[in-house]
Design a protein around this nucleic acid. Sequence first.
RNA 1: GUCCCCAUCGUCUAGCCCGGUCCAGGACACCGGCCUUUCACGCCGGCGACAGGGGUUCAAAUCCCCUUGGGGACGCCA
Length: 459
Amino acid sequence: MPQVVTRFAPSPTGHLHIGGARTALFNWLLARRLNGRFVLRIEDTDALRSTKEFTAAILAAMTWLKLDWDGEPIYQSHRLNLYREAIDRLVIEGRAYYCHCRPEELDKRRKATMAAGGKPKYDGRCRDKNLGPAPGAVVRFKGPESGKTGWTDLIKGPIIFDNRELDDLVLLRQDGQPTYNLAVVIDDATMGITHIIRGDDHVNNTPRQILLYQALDAPLPLFAHVPMILGADKTRLSKRHGATSVMAYKEMGYLPAAIANYLTRLGWSHGDQEIFSLKEMTELFDLAQVGRAAGVFNPEKLNWLNAYYIKKTPPETLEKLVWPYLEARGYIRPETEELKKIILTVRERGKTLAELAEKAEFYFQDLPPLDQTAQAKFMTPDNLTLLRELRELLHNSLTAEDFENILRHLAKEHGVKLGAVTQPLRLALTGRTASPGLFEIIDILGPEKILRRLNAVLK
RNA sequence: GUCCCCAUCGUCUAGCCCGGUCCAGGACACCGGCCUUUCACGCCGGCGACAGGGGUUCAAAUCCCCUUGGGGACGCCA
């Protein structure tokens, strides 16, 4: 069996989004699994909308996700000659023709057919006129007028189209640029792509492309159409469903491992298993296990996975990941060892890196602002007395363990539960009622800061 | 409108190809409990689905047909 070659072919007209990332992932996984090649092709034939910035952003997102590609990225804008040659050849062979119809006319006719209940396809009026190049002319493919075109989709199974459903698609635009369908076929054929894994929305392009392969006398690749990712309302995932760009998730504090795991599991499964490392996926991934139905993007499950991977991340790594969020808030970086201890106390309490930073913020604040409702509830005269007594017992050599003994002693003396003492103290030290373990906090803060925070509360 | 695709808990899914082991399994979320200095984590338990209708068959979540519902495509965008 010849080597498997897959590709990811984004157009740099926007950031890498969730759906694109999954397509890239599936292509990457198959190539890695079968020891094949995974190539990246930038589809920038739309010169108006394509930018270098988006290209760079897409590459950065791929890199962040750890999806490495083989060789240098291929740019369609560098291969225009190739497309022109192919188009010329098709025209000479009578498999394509010049069309002089104006876009406005076509648009008008399309609307009219649609209104009349028909499928709005090109009516073929220039098909047999044998026209030549002219300003404003395009080249169209001369498709068959009968017969059927189909393939066995690696995900969806057999799909067949009636050729009468297909119209003569434009291959060369008025401005001399090739169109998507032509460029894709030329590239996939010349780059030796064996498996085309792409979004469901390309199913309708596939028969046209197959016809082009045949006209070009090129061997057909295998096709696999991955179902779409939908939003909670079951419409195509878009900005209104929240963040869609991969890098936006990075900024929110998601781990690439979590994103990759989530995306792969959305549409693919391996029995009941939920957790997969990238490496494990490359060992198990199989197109046969990819589902046929569209899936709803579920941020809750992503959160769960992200929390899982955060919990698995060792403190020395996590510290580096969380620090930027704290730094952005203007805090001074403590010793690495201390930061690691701090991170460890919040590691199991947040679902994103940003959340971890938020939960650790009180360690860095000079005097954490007290939660108003909690203050009213816990800073009662009785509790203030308790805290005052505690302050009296405080001296610099106290360890967290001593602290615990003192608190238990105080509680006993006052005939209250331990919680009655810890909550006001927690509030004084963190400004909140929910926090990491009180004694861990005490250990990290140290007597000086504790005293300062107590004094602030005790006016 | 036309064509294409799809259909198991709210969501992701296992099971479907090779019908019986499924009064349908797992996960997220949700609810309850345990643990506990708070919040989490963790552990235990609960709620919850084969879209509907016809066939085929001794037997259907699994095969066939129809209906309904959903998604996608219909560009000189990709």
